[in-house]
Design a protein around this nucleic acid. Structure first.
Length: 720
DNA sequence: ATCACCCGGGG
DNA sequence: GTGTACGGGTGAT
């Protein structure tokens, strides 16, 4: 038997465990009240106990912050819907509140030592949360998709369903209400454990539910009555950009997983199960979270197990420096300006998981950096000279160390067990993302266990490590071509020796990432100086590595990335520098083919689409631009674009100031639509320039080259 | 010239 | 229910 899912209903304070027992999946229910902690005068216990909604109170010994000894606090179990009201009231009375926004499901699992997908024997756990080799139940998984009955134009909720696909079953050519009723029956009959959709949260499920409501039918996809999410999605800030997140359509007793969401995309089902087990977050919820939340969950779990409470709204202003102070203390990571142009026989060497390894090796955690117990510690952060605790290992290293080891185990197994390589690859990949975000979280002022001095210390160690490695490489006679954060590009002999020596000296593994037959570092187009993250090259295994240019960007039309990919493919045929130079004319020949196609009006609309995320609503833009024009067209069609959603458009008349004329959203394009040939021609030249600028091919020069041979073609195509 | 706005990582 | 800071590009003002 396995614990497929745990759900909580705050209306009746009931926990439901969904037990997968062979082919059967059954609910087991019990009443459960979340527990909060209050730090205040002990006399307040009777007041707390008398509050409406409070079930049970007690005194407990708990630590209220990392590194602090236990103290007497009040614990109270409370009706879930009363938690925030009571917390606010007590906070106003001067109490400090803890474990307030801890999801009841996770509290329940922690209290009972349970975790998602755990194997059970009767009612008891028969599994170990952090084991690597665990059994998973046979899960019945079905893909669900819906096709609306509209060939072109903008699809809206108003369009009736044309076809529903569930697994291998097609439901079509029927009255819409009958189709939905059949879907209900089919789901009940096939009884899957997982329903997987492409974009279920933003499209399939809300659309199906809406269509069902028109026929007075209840769509029933879960093993228990579906509860629709209330309200619309949310726009939030992440990775320096606004993201739109739709409300999650979660099912009871059956898991709805949306393929387009991060964790599922990066780790697949097995990665999701693995992460769900170690974080204790149920799969449906986890599949909709960012890796940062998973990292926080691991930290919170560890803290709770250590008897440390989780503060409510922790955002200690005095910890956070002003922007100016930050600028002085945090010079960020080290960067060596790349040498622009072509290089033969270059090596890329990287420190694996540099920042997480620094945190573990140097014991960096909010309670260990500048700790009160070791002011004279011998462990000092480079540049800043902060003292680090020598007596206790911090929360962060204790969480990260097993994570790094787990990932290393999976990475080893990719090689040891080739038949299961794909599975281990997905599992290590998802863990990699957790490690990456664990660093950024330190500098995030809303992070539960973040602290800016930790962030600073990590980058300081990073600078120190890269500087020492450069020195070592220099001593060994290597030429340094480029360096950034945790990577170096060097030219010389026997890079393995450098890696070995540096790994030994630094104590963090330095890996040989690749040997390049040749690599081109590109300049900043505005000043010709080497740009930090713009390069392309071919490794000795024949693989291309490309960064920073148009083809890597998600907003680039296919036409442009196709050109660059073709040019890269052509250049990649070169085995060395002299062959590379000989390939340049052929690459320019490809540019000629593409420009002819564009000017000859011979392009597919689908290749011309720009796609960008909008950062704000239609009325909030200060500047008129292409995407605003596209948003206005959508709005006229009755579709509101929310911050974080993406929009697509084709440029039709780039110089026009009119939002109707300037661009065209693809849904409205027809045979009469004329794209802006001059503009796409310009974009092609720029894309070629991006790659060939170090060799003297500017946009102007390329334009002349095209025009020189273009005269005849212009006549053929009849363009003047 | 300066400001506005978008994208990026890894395998 | 959430990474920040910043370099790089293009385009508007």
């Amino acid at each position: 038997m396995f614990l497929l899912d745990v759900r909580y209903n705050p209306e009746n304070s009931t926990i439901t465990r969904w037990i997968k027992d062979g082919a059967v999946c059954r609910p087991v229910r019990e009443v459960f009240y979340p527990r909060i902690y209050i730090s205040c005068k002990p006399e307040l216990l009777s007041l707390v106990a008398s509050l409406p909604g409070v079930k049970h109170t007690n005194y407990e010994e708990k630590s209220t912050w990392l590194g602090k000894g236990p103290e007497k606090v009040i614990s109270a179990t409370i009706e879930p819907n009363a938690v925030y009201e009571i917390a606010n009231m007590l906070e106003a009375k001067g109490c400090s509140l803890y474990n307030i926004d801890l999801d009841p499901v996770r509290q329940y699992m922690l209290e009972h030592g349970l975790f998602p997908m755990a194997r059970l024997k009767g009612d008891v756990l028969d599994d170990s949360q952090y084991s690597i080799d665990y059994e998973i139940p046979e899960l019945v998984s079905m893909e669900l998709s819906v096709t609306p009955g509209r060939e072109k134009g903008i699809i809206t909720m108003g369009d009736p369903i044309s076809r529903i696909t569930l697994g291998n079953t097609f439901i079509e050519n029927k009255d819409e209400g009958e189709m939905i009723a059949e879907l209900n029956r089919e789901v009940a009959r096939a009884n899957p454990d997982l329903i997987i959709t492409e974009k279920g949260d933003s499209f399939e499920l809300p659309y199906l539910h809406y269509r069902a409501s028109l026929h007075d039918i209840d769509l029933q996809l879960g093993r228990e009555k579906d509860i629709l999410p209330e309200g619309s999605g949310k726009s939030y800030f992440s990775y320096g950009r606004i993201i739109y997140k739709p409300k999650g359509y979660m099912l009871s007793g059956r898991l709805h997983l949306d393929r387009s969401i991060f964790v599922f995309r990066e780790g697949g089902l097995l990665g999701l199960i693995d992460l769900s087990r170690i974080t204790g977050i149920p799969m449906q919820e986890l599949s909709r979270l960012s890796p940062g939340s998973a990292v926080t969950a691991l930290q919170v779990n560890q803290a709770l197990r250590d008897g440390v409470l989780v503060p409510w709204k922790r955002n200690l202003a005095e910890y956070w420096k002003t922007a100016e102070e930050l600028l002085i203390a945090d010079r960020g990571a080290l960067v060596i300006e790349p040498k622009v142009g072509l290089h033969e026989n270059a090596f890329e060497i990287d420190f694996t998981s540099l920042f997480p390894n620094i945190m573990v090796k140097h014991n960096i955690s909010p309670e260990t950096v500048l700790c009160g117990c070791c002011p004279d510690s011998e462990k000092r952060v480079p540049f800043t000279h902060y003292n680090i605790c020598q007596q206790h290992i911090g929360l962060i290293p204790r969480v990260l160390k097993p994570l790094i080891e787990r990932r290393m185990t999976y990475k080893r197994r990719i090689i040891e067990f080739p038949l299961r390589a794909e599975e281990y690859e997905m599992k290590q990949n998802i863990l990699k993302w957790l490690l990456v975000t664990s660093f950024g979280y330190m500098g995030f002022n809303k992070a539960r266990f973040g602290r800016i001095e930790c962030h600073e210390s990590i980058t300081a160690y990073g600078r120190d490590i890269l500087l020492r490695t450069i020195e070592l490489a220099d001593d060994m006679g290597f030429e340094i071509l480029h360096g950034i954060v945790d990577s170096l590009w060097v030219k010389g002999r026997e890079p393995e020796k450098l890696c070995e020596l540096a790994s030994h000296e630094i104590g963090i593994p330095l890996e040989l990432k690749g040997e390049f037959r040749w690599i081109v570092f590109l300049p900043d187009k505005s000043n010709g100086v080497g740009a930090l993250n713009r390069y392309y090259g071919v490794m000795t295994n024949g693989k291309l590595k490309v960064r920073g240019i148009e083809t890597r960007r998600s907003d680039t039309p296919k036409l442009i990335s196709n050109l660059q990919d073709a040019m890269l493919g052509k250049l990649a045929e070169a085995k060395n520098a002299s062959e590379f130079y000989m390939k340049i004319p052929e690459a320019i020949g490809l540019l000629r083919e593409y420009t002819r196609k564009v000017l000859g009006n011979d392009c597919e609309f689908s290749d011309l689409i720009f796609k960008t995320h909008v950062s704000r609503g239609c009325d909030e833009y200060r500047q008129f631009n292409n995407q605003l024009a596209a948003m206005k067209q959508l709005k006229q069609e009755g579709i509101e674009t929310l911050a974080g959603q993406s929009i697509r458009y084709i440029i039709t008349d780039h110089k026009s100031r009119s939002w109707q004329k300037r661009v065209m959203i693809p849904e409205l394009a027809d045979d009469d639509t004329q794209y802006d040939r001059a503009k796409y021609y310009e974009h092609l030249l720029r894309a070629a320039e991006s790659m060939l600028l170090p060799f003297g091919y500017t946009q102007e020069r390329l334009d002349e080259l095209m025009k020189g041979k273009m005269q005849k073609n212009l006549l053929i195509y009849g363009i003047s």
